[in-house]
Computed example of a mutant assay.
Amino acid sequence: MRNPKDFFRPLAAGAPEPIREIPFRPSRMIHFFDPSNEKMAAKVPDLAKKVDIILGNLEDAIKAENKEAARLGLVKIAQSTDFGDTQLWTRVNSLDSPWVLDDLTTLVTEIGDKIDVIMVPKVEGAEDIHYVDRLLAQLEARAGIKKPILVHALLETARGVANVEEICSASPRMQGLSLGPADLAADRRMKTTRVGGGHPGYLVRQDPIDGDIEGQRTTYQQDLWHYTIARMVDACQANGIFAFYGPFGDIKDVVACEDQFRNAFLLGCVGAWSLHPVQIDIAKRVFSPEPADVAHALHVIEEMGDGTGAVMIDGKMEDDASVKQCHVMVDLAKQLSARDPELAATYGFADA
């Protein structure tokens, strides 16, 4: 058994010392792009100014014959682009693929000082993170990287969900988790072909009136992903890392996309994936607190004074738990305002 004191020691001689706390950075959207697509790659510098996280994708959606081009394309883009405060992530190929070793070796040694987070797909247990953890330390030592590259795990299998707590606690590198609904649906044998979102067949029905089962009865569509997202959020929060909703595949249905993103936000996710530029603004809007909610939170904090006891504010009982909730809202608003001047003005923090 590994001694807890060893948890924060480098796994390779010369590797950077592991960090002890994952810092929060605005992460409302992880915007995916294909580094092998020259037209898409040309847009990266402008996109980087609009998003919190930009991710060079090497795995799904990249054809086998384009894997090497995507890898080398990402190296070229990272070397030639100033990302400013925007985080640069990549999603490497799965650990059982013939490409992942070259992905990690090339990216860490060539652009390891530019990459903030590596997303690992189809993580099933702590052993997957342990493998990546050790390999990254060896490569960081070889390349002279001064800051450890963080790891983000993608939940895409039933086994991964079953082991979610041990995945979150497997390494100091763990930055967070994303839900991968399409692969997870297939692995669970769920009967849906949608990429994220709900399904009209997954519903509850109002009880019959006067025993008439054929009469008018309202139905309510349910959320296929509520259980998994809630479990993911709890596992992340218990380990000081961050939960993200994954892709919403129906690009044209911006209304349902916003609904799904908002559900994830309310449950505790810090962001979601954007697969198309139209989803960037949706994620930015949804994962930023409403100005009215921030104003209410500030009012409660001010009225509560030292945060103890219970008071009536605008006809509602508020106590120390209310203040804690309000601080979550205000802290997020302030963190986002530091990156987004327009949002700071909206919240009234522009002169703070």
Rank of each mutant, 00 (worst) to 15 (best):
Glu110Pro: 02
Asp82Val: 09
Asp113Cys: 07
Asp96Thr: 10
Lys114Val: 05
Ala141Gly: 10
Gln138Ile: 08
Pro121Trp: 00
Ala158Pro: 08
Ala126Trp: 04
Asp82Thr: 11
Asp116Ser: 15
Val123Ala: 02
Ile118Ala: 01
Leu95Trp: 09
Gln138Phe: 12
Thr106Arg: 01
Val151His: 03
Ser94Thr: 13
Ala78Leu: 07
Ala126Ser: 15
His130Thr: 08
Asp113Met: 05
Asp85Tyr: 08
Leu135Asn: 07
Thr86Asn: 04
Gly125Glu: 10
Ser97Phe: 11
His130Val: 04
Val151Gly: 00
Glu110Ile: 06
Trp99Lys: 02
Leu136Asp: 00
Met119Gly: 05
Ile77Gly: 00
Pro98Tyr: 12
Ile129Thr: 02
Thr81Ala: 12
Leu154Gly: 04
Val120Leu: 13
Phe83Cys: 01
Pro148Gln: 00
Ala126Lys: 14
Thr157Ala: 05
Val108Met: 08
Pro148Val: 00
Ser80Asn: 14
Val161Pro: 05
Pro148Tyr: 00
Trp89Val: 04
Asp133His: 08
Lys122Ser: 02
Leu95His: 10
Pro98Arg: 09
Asp82Arg: 14
Val151Gln: 03
Asp128Ser: 13
Ser97Val: 09
Glu110Tyr: 01
Leu155Phe: 10
Thr105Asn: 14
Leu135Trp: 13
Ala126Asn: 09
Thr157Ser: 14
Arg159Pro: 04
Leu155Gln: 08
Leu150Met: 15
Val161Gln: 03
Thr81Pro: 02
Leu150Cys: 09
Ala158Trp: 00
Pro121Val: 07
Ile129Gln: 02
Gly144Glu: 13
Asp128Leu: 11
His130Asn: 12
